[in-house]
Structures are given as C-alpha cells and as structure tokens.
Design a binder for these strands. Structure first.
Length: 561
RNA sequence: GCGCUCGUAGCUCAGGGGAUAGAGUGACGGUUUCCGAGGCCGGUGGUCGCAGGUUCGAAUCCUGCCGGGCGCACCA
C-alpha cells in the first residue's frame, strides 16, 4: 500500500472508531455505519481531506449533520494521523488539514521503489487475458485497429502494474467465409497476373496489396498453380498470403510498440475438433435445438434478443460457434478474467457472447468487453473521409510514419474509449506545447537536462536526502508536485479497477503541468547545498514517475528532444 | 420499429452521488536578461440536450422525450 493510501486508510479507521465510541457513551445513535467517503475536496480551501460521514449518518442518528460532525470530531483520536486540524463546513462536511511534512516522505518511497513505484497488488497474481485488435488477416490495419492496439496494450500494462498476471492475445480470423472470399480473390488476381481473363469475385478483396502478394507468389513459384485443381490451388495461395499478411500485421504492431504473448488461430479450433466439442457440450446442456435445417443456440435464455444460428444448414459452423469455442478455451486455460476490446460496431454481440459464456457455465461477468467508438481523422481542419470500398483509408503504418508511434498512442489513450475521437493529424505532428504528447515528453527531457547539468557540476542527483533537507520542499509548487506523485499508486488502482487507461494519460498531463509550474517558479541548481540536494531528489523522483507512467502508455520518455 | 451508446465553455475533451462543474485550445490583456522560450501569469467564457423522478444533496442513478453514432444475416 502506498504512503497516501495508508494515511487515508488510517484516518478512515479513526473516523469509524470515533462514531463507535460516541455510540458507546450514548451521544450518537445508529445501527451500522453507512458507506461514507474520505476524499480530497475539489477546492483547496476545504483542506486536504474531507468526509461526508456526518451527512450519511443523519437518517439513523436523527440529528443534524453539523451536530453529528461535532460529535465525531470530539471523539476523534488524531494520534499518528498527520491531522493538524478538523473543521465542519458547508452542509456538514468534516474537513481535515494534514501536516504538509507527510508529503516529503514520498521521495524516499519513489527512490527506493524506482521503476516499481506505482506497482500495486490488487490483482494478486490473478490471470487476466486481454484480447485486442484481432483484425482480419486479409488486409492492412486501419485507424480503428490502431485505437484498439493502443488501448489494449496499455490496459494490459496497467493491469500488470496493478498486480495481475496479464497475457496479450491476438485472435486470428483465419477461417470461414471471409477467408474463402480471400482465397477466391487471390486466385483471380493470380490468374489475371498470368494473363488470364477471369472475373473478379463480387465479394472479393479489392486492395492493391493483394496484387503485390500475388506478384511475389509468381516470383517464387511461377505459374505452377495454374494447372492445379481449384480447391488445392486456393488453399496453397491462401496459406501463403495469410502467412505474409500476419507477418505484416505483426511487424506493424511491433513498430507501434505492441507485442503479443499469444497469436491464436481460429482455424486451429476447427482442426482440433474443439468447435464440435463445444457445440456438443452446449447440446448436452440442452441449449441447442434444430430449426429449418440449422442448429440454434437458445441464447435468449441468457439475455440475447434472439436465438443465434450456430451450425448452418450446410453443416458449417458459424463464426459465433468458433467464438464460443474460443472463449471456452480461454477459460479452460485458467484465465479468471477475460477482457476483449471490440469496435463499437460489434456492440450488438456483447449480450450474446456473455450469454454464451454463461451457457458454458462460467460467470458472464468474468468476460468484460470494452467497446471503443470510431475514430474521425482531421486534417487541415477537415474530416478525412475514409472508406474501404474506395480504397481511401489511412493505415496504421502510414499513421506511424506520419505522426510517430508516441503521438499516435497518446492521442488514442487520452480519450475515454466510449467517446468518438477526433484525431487531429496536424496537432499530433506539431512539435509545440499545444501537442499534449510533446508537453509531457518535454517535461521528461527537461528533467533529464537538469540532472545532466547537476552531474556536470559534480552534484549527486541520486541520493536520498535526510528529513531536515526534505522539509525544505515547502513551496506550494513543490507540495503540489509531491502530492501528485503520492497519488500515483492510487491512480493505478482506480484505473485498473475501472479498466480505464485514459486516466493514466490524464494523470501524466496534469503531472506535467505541475512540473512546468514548479520549474518556472523555482530553480533546482541553487547555491544552498541542502535545498539543492532536496530539489534534486524531488526532480529525480519526478522523472521516475514520468518514466513509469509513460511506460504504461507505451510512450517513450526521451532524455533529449 | 427494437436495442446499445453518446450529448458538458466557441472548439477538443475531463469529471468515483457531494461544497462555487474543470483542463487544454481559441480570442483578449499582461509578462519574460534566469537550470531547455518548444515560455509564463491573468480575467472572460456554462439553462451540464429537454422534462420529470429518487436523494439531505444529481452532470453523475431511474423514466420519458429530442438529437448524433452504431447495431438488429444460416457475414465476420
């Protein structure tokens, strides 16, 4: 538990003790302590911490909140709490002021824990899987995939920081109709390249990249597939193309700073009989029935709007069947929590997927689906129209070479997934403080610059100063910075609990603002050795927290810019 | 039509049932010989889509309506 958590927890406990004590001597009546909060008030004038305990007790105690607050305060044991004063304010809040010296204790904590500072244990080693991107291997990654990649990867990093054992997984949709169409398209392109006048399939993949793939095949294997029987030809072509496409996706994600623990093939579920086995299990449980020649899952039993087809009339299992098998497999592998990141265009599938998990006998809440809205690209102040049909869309590769991985990742993570974002390409590219990613990276570079100068002047920026020296960090700017640093572990806990990495991006922005404010008001490399030592420790710690937070976001913390 | 989701400052967005709803940006005014000017400080800017309800207290929870996005295949 972090320093700040401990302080809050301690005071929270003392508040509970205070009301129990008051009840014991008859000054306060209540049955049980209702849920109450102890939190930082928005306004600094209300002190460091505030509690609504008196207000939530009004109903049971049948007294005015201010009276109750008065009783609580007179029964409060402030020993060892850092509390210097309590006052009743507004409708009945109890506001506490803390001895600001507690803040300086955060510095030794950061220095000692270094890159582990912020790591918390709420996950307790629980196995969590995050599945994200899982783009069709028939083409290139687009902006939606980019958002999913940034979000999924930092969510995974966040959960790891919170003490979960995290596995990142990419589900390869290498089976089904789309692959069949992919094969037909490849076949057509292949024959066309070799001079045959064959029509292009209606539902085919029109991307230029397909022609490139086919050219490579011809380069390596010539026209040997022409004379083959169609099915075999398509299989060989598709096998080659899939390998190439998946390798390309892997490489692009790698450039984006994303790497997976597992690449899971949908086809493997069919090949191993796992899909059939899963259908059988559902059948045994009585959740399957036949209608119009197809097999249906009674998904309405579990909150779906309508039952779903699981095996088509032609005997081929649907995508949904494979997906159920896949999720069964996830839980069979021992993940107690499974998180999927999906585009909002799939939100209609959430209920049925959760229903399927329940039908399999697992708690549907152990599957969490994070939906993310679409990305609108803005260039020159206008929306860039994107459509796959016209072939006019920006790929992740292009995005990385345009604005860089750091800016792209930061922009995506900054927003709540559930809001449509406007991605301003010009802003993301700009190298100014208007650009949030530069603003935070610049802070880190500036910190490194000060540390470099300190070293050149022969000062040691790594030491942990003693209490007397740390007490010199008493300005408002220093305290604000220390406070934010002390908040970091708590931010990790909250963000991890809510599965919201954008909170960390917000945190980094706020932290950068506080650092720049400090920097502009006070010098670090001053003549007074005690103050200088204390401030060097402050900025070393600040740098460390930046590095740790940016690490979760997958954004580099540069030493120079 | 049914379902999901979003609606907060001119713009882009934060906001864990709490006190006077915040940040960035734009526009305006001021300031800057200084560890990185790739600045800094300041005031301005709001019927939190609308109407009810729950609550001591609602941007937040519930219901209805309006508006945007998305979904409603034996596609994935």
């Amino acid at each position: 538990m972090s320093l700040y958590e401990k302080i809050k927890e301690n005071i929270y406990g003392k508040l509970e003790e205070a009301v129990i004590k008051a009840r014991a001597d008859g000054t306060l009546r209540f049955n049980e302590i209702p849920a109450f909060v102890l939190e930082e008030p928005r306004e600094r004038q209300y002190g460091d911490l505030a509690s609504n305990l008196a207000m939530v007790l009004t109903k049971q105690a049948k007294r005015s909140p201010r009276d109750i607050a008065d009783i609580i305060i007179s029964n409060l044991d402030k020993e060892g709490t850092w509390i210097t004063s309590c006052e009743i304010a507004g409708p009945g809040f109890i506001n506490f002021r803390l001895d600001p010296l507690w803040l300086t204790e955060v510095i030794p904590e950061v220095v000692n824990q270094a890159e582990k500072y912020g790591a918390v244990k709420i996950g307790q080693g629980e196995k969590v899987q995050v599945e994200f991107v899982s783009a069709n291997p028939t083409g290139l990654l687009h902006m939606g995939n980019a958002r999913g990649a940034a979000l999924g990867d930092s969510l995974a990093a966040l959960l790891a920081m919170a003490g979960y054992e995290v596995s990142r997984e990419f589900y390869i949709n290498d089976a089904g109709n789309q692959i069949y169409n992919f094969a037909l398209s490849l076949e057509a392109r292949y024959l066309q390249q070799l001079g045959q006048d064959v029509p292009f399939p209606e539902a085919g993949y029109h991307g230029e990249d397909l022609i490139e793939t086919v050219k490579k095949i011809i380069e390596q294997n010539g026209d040997k597939y022409v004379s083959m029987e169609g099915e075999l030809r398509r299989e060989l072509l598709v096998r080659y193309a899939l390998k190439e496409k998946i390798a390309a996706i892997k490489e692009t994600l790698d450039d984006f700073g994303v790497s997976y623990d597992v690449w899971f093939s949908e086809q493997s579920l069919h090949d191993s009989g796992y899909v059939q086995e899963t259908i059988k299990e559902l059948e045994n449980k009585g959740y399957i029935y036949e209608k119009e020649g197809a097999l249906w899952l009674k998904s309405t039993l579990f909150g779906d709007e309508k039952d779903e087809v699981i095996v088509r009339k032609n005997g081929v299992p649907t995508y949904f069947a494979a997906d159920i098998a896949y999720h069964r497999n996830k839980f069979a592998r021992g993940f107690s929590k499974v998180i999927n990141i999906w585009g909002a265009d799939h939100h209609g599938h959430v209920a049925r997927m959760k229903g399927a998990v329940q039908a399999l006998g697992y708690n549907p809440d152990s599957l969490q689906i994070v939906l993310m809205q679409l990305v609108k690209l803005i260039q020159d102040g206008e929306i860039v129209r994107m459509s796959k049909r016209s072939g006019q869309y920006i790929t992740l590769e292009e995005l990385i070479s345009e604005v860089g991985k750091d800016a792209a990742r930061f922009f995506f993570i900054l927003r709540d997934p559930d809001s449509t974002v406007e991605f301003d390409l010009d802003l993301a590219k700009s190298e100014s403080a208007d650009n949030p990613v530069y603003y935070v990276q610049y802070a880190h570079a500036r910190l490194c610059s000060i540390i470099r100068q300190a070293l050149e002047l022969g000062y040691d920026p790594t030491g942990v100063p003693g209490k007397e020296q740390l007490q010199l960090l008493a300005s408002q700017e220093e305290r604000d910075l220390l406070k934010k640093m002390a908040d970091f572990p708590g931010e990790i806990i909250l963000a991890a609990k809510l599965a919201e990495p954008h909170r960390i991006a917000r945190y980094v922005l706020d932290f950068a603002a506080l650092f720049h404010t400090f920097y502009n008001s006070q010098r670090v490399l001053v003549d007074d050795p005690a103050l200088r030592t204390a401030r060097l420790a402050l900025i070393s710690s600040t740098r460390q927290v930046f590095a740790n937070a940016l690490g979760i976001l997958g954004v580099t913390a540069p030493e120079r810019m």
